[in-house]
Design a protein around this nucleic acid. Sequence first.
DNA 1: CTAAAACTTGAACAAAGGTTGAAGTCAAGT
DNA 2: ACTTGACTTCAACCTTTGTTCAAGTTTTAG
Lengths: 129, 129
Amino acid sequence: MNQLLTKSMTVSDLASASRVNASAVRFYDKHGLIAGERTSGNQRRFSEEDACRIKVIRVAQRVGLSVSEISELLIDLPSKPSSAEWAVVGAKLRAAAQERIDQLNHALDDLTGPVQLCDVSNSVDSPEA
Amino acid sequence: MNQLLTKSMTVSDLASASRVNASAVRFYDKHGLIAGERTSGNQRRFSEEDACRIKVIRVAQRVGLSVSEISELLIDLPSKPSSAEWAVVGAKLRAAAQERIDQLNHALDDLTGPVQLCDVSNSVDSPEA
DNA sequence: CTAAAACTTGAACAAAGGTTGAAGTCAAGT
DNA sequence: ACTTGACTTCAACCTTTGTTCAAGTTTTAG
């Protein structure tokens, strides 16, 4: 069996591999964003899949998604996802990012566009009458 | 004198004009993001300029800037800014937005690009030996 | 002038996304 | 088997960006 696919990493293994704090790993686990298993002694164990999920989580956060939105993004992702299944997640993230970008550009256009919404200076009534 | 340029709006005037809560206006004032004056009785008074500042603040927040970053964005803006001075702020905001967008696209490319960083499935060692 | 409405400050609370610490349990080396 | 380091949960705390509330002051309309 592929060692990378077995749930053999501890919380701190995954944390250092993903360069996040162990407490963040527990936080993501508590919110169901990663797919850890438990040993008979109740300790968490993770695989590379969970490292990938954390990569997705970090990007999704930069896109501006909340934990519950990321949860919805990942809810359809099964254990041991195929390439195609990861690609679906990637596409959804790209779409979400593009939506944010479009909103942002729209807001910027409102601010600095043809109408000059923020220009209030010396033009509304005649200067010094 | 142009009525729009005098500091004659109260906190709630500005709040309703900007469609934010009065507490948000006080918050922005406390952090120096808007340029209110005080009456002899210590009450705040604002002009249209402050409504413009609040527009900038809201867009900047969507770009992802924190209050202290927005503070730096606005620190060079004088009282009664000219068109050109507003345009500088607009340009800085656009640049900040573009930077975020570029970072985001870079992160997305890392995630879903040619290398398929999140594809770990069935390909690292031979399937079932 | 007075009463009501709106203003002032400060402190407490909220939600998100964690971090830190305490007390106790598990796992790994010898 | 025992020790030590890493793990567990839970609760308290942190930062950001506000909101809400209480007690007291200012403004404004009559």
